[in-house]
Structure formats: structure tokens, C-alpha cells
Amino acid sequence: QKPVSAYALFFRDTQAAIKGQNPNATFGEVSKIVASMWDSLGEEQKQVYKRKTEAAKKEYLKALAAYR
């Protein structure tokens, strides 16, 4: 399975908490809140997710090379 983006990892980590705080929110509303949070996130915090994405990408490429 291809690795997901840094934003997708952040979304996955954040979505449940947002939904818990806003139980009646639609998926679209939750998405807007998470997107706003991502935009206001500091670069250092974004780097945490970007590093996770890079590590997953390297593992994916290694597994793909081994498969071929």
C-alpha cells in the first residue's frame, strides 16, 4: 500500500478528537476544521508528519524493490 501524505497522517490523528468535540459535524465540516488546524500548524510540527511520510515512503520503495 502506498504511503499517505503528511496531511493525511495529521488528518487521521486529529479527526477522532474533532468528531468527539463536534459529534453532529458532517465529514465535510470536520475536514474544514482539520484543514484549518493544519494550516495554522507550525513548520516544526508539520515536519514530524513529513518525516513519518518519508520513512513510510522509503519502506514502501524497499518492499516494492524486493517484490520485483
Score class of each variant (00 low, 15 high):
residue 60 Y to L: 04
residue 32 K to N: 15
residue 66 A to G: 14
residue 17 A to E: 10
residue 30 V to T: 04
residue 55 A to G: 11
residue 40 S to F: 01
residue 60 Y to R: 09
residue 62 K to L: 04
residue 51 R to K: 13
residue 44 E to M: 03
residue 18 I to H: 00
residue 24 N to E: 12
residue 3 P to F: 14
residue 3 P to C: 04
residue 4 V to K: 07
residue 11 F to I: 02
residue 39 D to Y: 06
residue 57 K to L: 04
residue 65 A to Q: 12
residue 44 E to H: 06
residue 36 S to E: 13
residue 8 A to R: 11
residue 18 I to Y: 12
residue 59 E to C: 04
residue 39 D to L: 06
residue 11 F to G: 00
residue 61 L to C: 12
residue 54 E to W: 05
residue 19 K to M: 13
residue 66 A to W: 09
residue 67 Y to H: 15
residue 37 M to T: 11
residue 44 E to G: 08
residue 67 Y to C: 15
residue 29 E to T: 03
residue 7 Y to F: 04
residue 34 V to P: 01
residue 26 T to Q: 07
residue 37 M to R: 12
residue 12 R to D: 03
residue 11 F to K: 07
residue 3 P to D: 15
residue 4 V to Q: 10
residue 2 K to P: 06
residue 63 A to G: 15
residue 2 K to N: 12
residue 19 K to C: 08
residue 26 T to I: 00
residue 40 S to N: 12
residue 62 K to H: 11
residue 60 Y to Q: 14
residue 35 A to K: 11
residue 40 S to D: 06
residue 46 K to D: 01
residue 67 Y to Q: 15
residue 7 Y to E: 06
residue 34 V to H: 00
residue 43 E to F: 06
residue 17 A to V: 12
residue 56 A to S: 08
residue 34 V to S: 02
residue 32 K to L: 04
residue 31 S to A: 09
residue 23 P to F: 00
residue 33 I to S: 06
residue 36 S to Y: 07
residue 3 P to E: 07
residue 42 G to C: 13
residue 55 A to L: 11
residue 20 G to M: 06
residue 22 N to E: 03
residue 26 T to C: 06
residue 56 A to R: 07
residue 37 M to N: 09
residue 43 E to Y: 13
residue 41 L to W: 00
residue 27 F to N: 15
residue 10 F to I: 00
residue 37 M to L: 07
residue 21 Q to E: 14
residue 45 Q to D: 14
residue 54 E to P: 09
residue 10 F to M: 01
residue 4 V to S: 09
residue 49 Y to H: 14
residue 14 T to P: 02
residue 59 E to V: 05
residue 19 K to T: 06
residue 60 Y to T: 15
residue 17 A to Y: 10
residue 37 M to W: 00
residue 59 E to F: 03
residue 19 K to A: 11
residue 7 Y to H: 07
residue 51 R to T: 13
residue 18 I to Q: 01
residue 27 F to H: 15
residue 67 Y to K: 15
residue 42 G to H: 10
residue 41 L to E: 00
residue 39 D to H: 10
residue 3 P to I: 06
residue 59 E to T: 10
residue 32 K to D: 10
residue 58 K to Y: 05
residue 25 A to K: 08
residue 3 P to V: 08
residue 10 F to E: 02
residue 59 E to Y: 02
residue 64 L to W: 06
residue 44 E to L: 02
residue 65 A to D: 13
